[in-house]
């Protein structure tokens, strides 16, 4: 019962961070600031959802599989963000300034 509550809470928080990442993607002014929103908010959101699901996993193997998924997404997200930022910079896209 308590585990289900904590798990539900974590998944809900994760969804809020996913929403924040999407809101940032829509509201932020340029490619660099949007990358910030996507990498950080989405990774945290996914981390919370994974943690919430791990609490309800049927077996240790299933729980560790979820953890593995999060680590792989973390690696892919961070590397891809850096690649996009680099190619944007090399194309001469200037960072937005107030």
């Amino acid at each position: 019962m308590l585990i289900e509550l904590v798990s539900g809470l974590l998944i809900l928080c994760g969804a809020v961070f996913f929403a924040a990442g999407t809101v940032g993607l829509l509201r932020f002014p340029d490619v660099y600031t949007r990358l910030h929103a996507l990498t950080k908010a989405d990774n945290l959101g996914l981390g919370m959802i994974v943690l919430g699901l791990m609490l309800q996993a049927e077996s240790l193997a299933a729980a560790s599989k979820l953890l593995l998924i999060w680590i792989l997404v973390l690696l892919a997200g961070a590397s891809v963000a850096q690649l996009i930022a680099r190619s944007a910079f090399q194309k001469g896209i200037p960072p937005w300034k107030r």
């Binding site: 961070f17 990442g21 940032g24 910030h36 908010a41 960072p95 300034k97």
Partner: peptide, 15 residues
Amino acid sequence: VARRAFHPALPLAPD
């Protein structure tokens, strides 16, 4: 970053 995204004034000072 979530706080900045939801904030009405969009508090960013990128560089």
